[in-house]
Design a protein around this nucleic acid. Structure first.
Length: 221
DNA sequence: ACCCAGGGTCATA
DNA sequence: TATGACCATGGG
């Protein structure tokens, strides 16, 4: 059983960091904004999420009490630019009522990470990636966030684990790297930033900071 | 015009 | 367990 090597992962990390620099994630003014953004960015471009967050702020609605107290159509209207607005209005309401019922950020912050994670995951509309975004970037817990970019990166680097179920892959990465909040924070951000890059060189990418392998989503047309 | 984005749920086999 | 449909806007 080879497994993931800490040395290779750290090499990868340094390579990405050298190419893109520190990302200083998550872009938000408060932990609650991180949580809201995590829900809104599900399968959605961040630029669209920014518009929705702007709408919420303009209406003093970036607040769990205001959100739970808003009419569905009103909330959906604010969320409209982020796509799936009806679905996300329901999910955000479900999350906010849970958040209030749990006693807010201070009370939640006292829970240990496994307990907090399982409670977040129990909220309807919050899956593993969204939950881990919240744990890492809103609650500062050393949780490695897995996304489609992470899987593609492992796959194209010929590293094992890209096809594992979410939880197994997360455990494998955390085991290889050891608990490290700052590393997990920057690593995920860099993976996403790099994943968004588009290869414009053909027939093979030479501009990619990761060896000679093209990690871009698709070869140019 | 086409592709895809910082996913998750639900129905079906 | 594993696919497929569905949700929807906006930028490249």
């Amino acid at each position: 059983m080879p497994g993931l090597s800490r040395a290779v992962l750290l090499w990868l990390f340094e390579r990405l960091l050298a190419a893109y620099g520190p990302q200083e994630w998550w872009p938000a003014d408060s932990p609650f904004e991180v949580m809201t953004g995590a829900v809104l960015t599900q399968n959605t471009a961040w630029t669209n999420v920014e518009k929705a967050l702007k709408n919420l702020k303009a209406n003093q609605a970036l607040d769990p009490l205001v959100i739970t107290g808003s009419a569905d159509e009103t909330l959906a209207g604010w969320l409209r630019p982020s796509g799936y607005f009806n679905v996300k209005a329901r999910r955000l309401k479900a999350f906010c009522s849970w958040y209030l019922q749990e006693g807010g950020e201070e009370a939640l912050g006292r829970l240990d990470t496994p307990e907090l994670r399982s409670r977040i995951l129990a909220v309807h509309g919050i899956g593993p990636e969204t939950a881990d975004d919240i744990l890492l970037y809103a609650f500062d817990r050393p949780v490695f966030v897995i996304d489609a970019y992470t899987r593609r990166l492992l796959d194209r680097m010929a590293l094992p684990g890209g096809d594992l179920p979410y939880e197994q892959l997360r455990i494998a990465l955390e085991k290889a790297l050891g608990p490290d909040l700052a590393l997990y924070n920057e690593f995920h951000a860099l993976i996403v930033i790099h994943g968004k890059e588009r290869c414009r060189v053909k027939p093979r990418c030479h501009g990619c900071p990761l060896i000679n392998r093209c990690l871009m989503p698709k070869m140019p047309r």
